[in-house]
Every structure is written in C-alpha cells, then in structure tokens.
Amino acid sequence: MRRLMPVFVASDGRDPVAPPPGLEAGILLRDLDLLTLVRRAGSIQAPIALDLDSVEGLNPDPTAARFVIEELGVDLVVTRRPTVALRAVELGRSALLHVLAFDSTGLARSLEGHPGTPGVGTIVSPGPVLDHLLAPDLQRLPRPLVAYGFIDTPERAAGLLRYADAVVVPPACALLMARGTLPADAGAVVGRG
C-alpha cells in the first residue's frame, strides 16, 4: 500500500521533469507521444502518474496498462476506462478513473461505470468543480480523490485539498507551492477504496 502524493506536477515530458525541492510531489505525464514517454519515464525519480488516454500512439487499453506499468514503471494509471483501471490494480498498482464533471447528470453517469474497488480512486476534471459539488455528490466519489485541470495557483490548490486527497498543478504553480505549506492532512493512502 503506497501513500498518494498530495501534489502531482503535470508534464508533457518535453523538458526534464522533477518536483521542485521541498515539495512532496509526483509527476503526472500527459499530452506526450509514446516515444517521448518511453524516453522520459526512466529518468523520473518521483512517483509517476500517467494520463493514459492522452498519449499519442498508445491505445489506452489493458495491454497498454501492462506496458506502462511493467516496462516503464508507472505507479498510477489515469484512465477513463474501468477495465484499464482494474488491469492496473491486477498488476499491483493503483488507478484513478478519470471523471469529466460537466454537469450533475454526466457526473452520475460517469460514476455508474466506476469499479469502486480498492485501488481505483477518482480523478475529476475540471478540478475547481469540486468546490461546487453537494456533499452527497462528493461522498459518492470513490477515494482517493484527485482534482485535475484549471488549478493554476497555490491558493486554488490548497482550497481544493479541503475536498481532494491530491491536486494536479502546472510546474509554475508547483514551484510556488514549494515555497509555501500544504494542509497538514493533505494526501491519502492509495488502495483504501
């Protein structure tokens, strides 16, 4: 059982990536192509999350999940496909089901397909929508819960960490966060369901 980093720094892998010193963070790779992913993954020292659906050249299916976990060392798979999330868990890693929260109806439908099993959490886009969900909606989101998208300032990130176990932020925001502090209870244990 691994602890989820409270912050993931988003990266397209073009530049060498590492969390800023002083910030307990992982790296979320997204919007890159397969060759760049293969080149970059081995050089990252921090825990790696991967937005599997955004990798050009990779079909985001269970075979791809096995490849990125076993060959590239990805720790956390972000996917919109429940079968892929479950495959990641079978392989001993964790997954976050990517839920696009555009309205309450869409959110409910997305959650119908959530496996809800230990090891599969939820990553919600856009992140700031968590501020506007009713308590019952928040409680229905399987944990750990990660906010992803449109989180550009440390204040916004800290605000969302009231609801979420982790946030995904751009490098510039991570740098600013490294100079500040996070809530004491930020972070969560992956795999608690």
Binding site: A101, D103, S104, P126, P128, V129, F150
Partner: peptide, 28 residues
C-alpha cells in the same frame, strides 16, 4: 460552456468570442 459554474473562474483565460455565451452545469 460546461461546467458553467466555473465560468467566473476561467473567463479571464478565454478571449472574447464572436457569439453569445450560455453556461450550464452545477449551477444550483
């Protein structure tokens, strides 16, 4: 725009559009 409830937060990131904007989603 969806989710419309975050429009106030992201409007500054969007250029002026030639057409009118509606907003829907989580507006309660």
């Amino acid at each position: 725009v969806l989710p419309g409830v975050i429009l106030p937060e992201v409007r500054a990131l969007m250029p002026s559009l030639r057409v009118p904007l509606l907003a829907g989603g989580f507006i309660r």
